[in-house]
Design a protein around this nucleic acid. Structure first.
Length: 264
DNA sequence: ATCGGTACCTGCACGC
DNA sequence: TGCGTGCAGGTACCGA
């Protein structure tokens, strides 16, 4: 579930709380979610001071000093709850000198990893979808093969976009999700970049989209789902032309678009 | 080097 | 009520 706006919202709720706290204890309850040895990791971060927290794409990065970074990816159903209560889906628990952080994740697609340098998977991420300048976006798009939707979802191309915001962005830009990336006119590339930025900014302003699981670091739901124009609205009328919104599958992902408004 | 397909895991909605 | 099916915001890995 969590895409850039959701992770950014979690970041903003945790940013005032975590830095300056000291790790008293870290417990890991799932070897699926935890990358590496739980006992070893726990020992490694115990006693450390949280120096800062940042977002890279859909990853949250906790700076624990001395070349130690705790990276958290929320997967599809991950939640980080400040002062949360452990429950049946709790996969990790961080106890600080004051306060605690609970990581819940029913499907266990999320990942928690401690490393010295930045892990390769994070170093490989493309520029942030929220802040990439138009010229750089256009330059990276140049010469790319394949369909535009899978490319926007490719975290090495740009980081942060997921299924919801890709569909919403393409609708706003009036571009068909199967359009060939290499064939987009400069005008369409400009529109696509602008739409992406507007959608992501609006979603962040609404605290993200809460469809089933997502809540921020204080357990509060977002409200951008009420502004979705096409995502999850197959069969409903297009807000622009009134025709039915269609759902197809592209790269194994449910894809929602308006066949009238979005042309290849 | 890139793709498309599959796998990972749990919960829920839906139809019968 | 219960069961089978399909679907879900994500990424990683496989072989072509």
């Amino acid at each position: 579930m969590p895409e850039l706006p959701e992770v950014e919202t979690v970041l903003r709720t945790l940013e005032p709380r975590l830095p300056g706290r000291r790790v008293i204890e870290a417990r890991f309850y799932s070897s699926l979610v935890m990358r590496g040895d739980a006992a070893e990791t726990s020992k490694r971060i115990r006693g450390r001071l949280i120096r800062g927290i940042a977002r890279r794409g859909k990853f949250l990065l906790l700076d624990l000093g001395e070349d130690t970074t705790l990276a958290i990816h929320l997967g599809m159903t991950g939640r980080l709850i400040w002062q949360g209560t452990p429950g049946p889906h709790t996969r990790a628990l961080f106890v600080f000198d004051r306060g605690r952080l609970v990581y819940d994740d029913p499907r266990q697609f999320g990942r928690i990893e401690v490393s010295a340098a930045l892990p390769a998977r994070i170093a490989r991420l493309g520029p942030d979808a929220l802040s990439i300048p138009e010229a750089e976006f256009a330059a990276r798009l140049r010469g790319r093969r394949g369909l535009i939707k899978p490319l926007l979802l490719n975290q090495a191309f740009i980081s942060g976009m997921g299924n919801i915001y890709t569909d919403e962005t393409l609708f706003r830009a009036r571009i068909h999700p199967r359009a060939l990336a290499s064939r987009l006119s400069p005008e369409r590339v400009r529109r696509l970049h602008q739409a992406m930025r507007e959608i992501l900014e609006a979603a962040v302003a609404s605290g993200g989209s809460s469809i089933a699981d997502y809540v921020d670091g204080d357990g509060r739901a977002g409200s951008f789902q009420f502004q979705h124009q096409v995502y999850g609205r197959a069969g409903e009328p297009c807000p622009a032309c009134g025709g039915p919104i269609r759902r197809i599958v592209i790269a194994q992902r449910g894809t929602h678009y308006c066949p009238k408004c979005q042309r290849a």
